[in-house]
């Protein structure tokens, strides 16, 4: 059972079950807890190799026991996501904790990842349960519907869920090459039906200065 203690601390009530969390993100607990590092994010040997190859490394620990465990990471804002059989796509660095019932994996994101500096791959979380994702500043949740596609700055994107196609949109023109770029030359365009999480801050990306 995930709940927020303030906006920057995640409290998880455990009754003998387990939760997967980013390695070293525990800040306090009461009750009895055991922490076990999971090599390769608990995805087996194949998952471990995939993560190593794709650069979506994630060191995960499994916390199990009885009581309440608190997680936080560098005072990032935490957002709870409920999954009901659907898939959450999130950058590995933004994933804080998942229910142990959720499966994590890696997926190819296509061209947009390469240009946005987020890597060509992203982490997927699927199944039924709760996940906690982190953002720099309170995240804004934006709905994408067929009549309203959404354009997102690659540096501000953190996660999305639902049936969304993403494509890469570029506003580069001859003025960009002349050094009169708009600073907004690249965007990820989301179409379909789903939700996108955006943080009010921009990571440094390759396209950010163009």
């Amino acid at each position: 059972m995930f709940r927020l203690q303030g906006s920057k601390t995640l409290a998880v009530d455990l009754t003998g079950d387990a939760v997967k969390a980013k390695n070293g993100s525990m800040v306090a607990y009461d009750g009895r807890m055991t922490f076990k590092k999971m090599s390769g994010g608990g995805e087996g040997l194949r998952g471990m190799v995939t993560r190593r190859l794709t650069g979506e490394q994630m060191t995960v620990m499994e916390v199990s026991g009885q009581g309440t465990c608190y997680f936080a990471d560098r005072a990032s804002e935490i957002n709870l996501v409920s999954l009901h059989g659907d898939t959450l796509y999130v950058e590995a660095s933004n994933l804080l904790a998942t229910d142990s019932g959720l499966r994590t994996g890696t997926t190819f994101t296509g061209l947009r990842g390469g240009a946005s500096g987020n890597g060509l791959f992203t982490t997927t979380v699927e199944g039924t349960g709760q996940a906690a994702i982190m953002s720099d500043g309170a995240a804004v949740l934006l709905r994408v519907s067929p009549q309203y596609p959404l354009m997102v700055d690659p540096g501000a994107y953190i996660a999305h869920q639902g049936r969304l196609q993403q494509s890469f949109q570029s506003g580069v023109n001859f003025r960009t090459l002349m050094g009169e770029g708009s600073g907004e030359a690249f965007q990820i365009r989301f179409e379909g039906d789903g939700l996108v999480y955006v943080q009010p801050s921009e990571r440094n990306t390759v396209g950010g200065d163009v």
Partner: peptide
């Protein structure tokens, strides 16, 4: 520059120089 994080609709961003 670079403060837009997301948008809906049809918006163009242009650097302001000449033109």
């Amino acid at each position: 520059k670079g403060k837009m994080i997301a948008y809906y609709g049809q918006i163009d961003f242009d650097g302001i120089g000449h033109g």
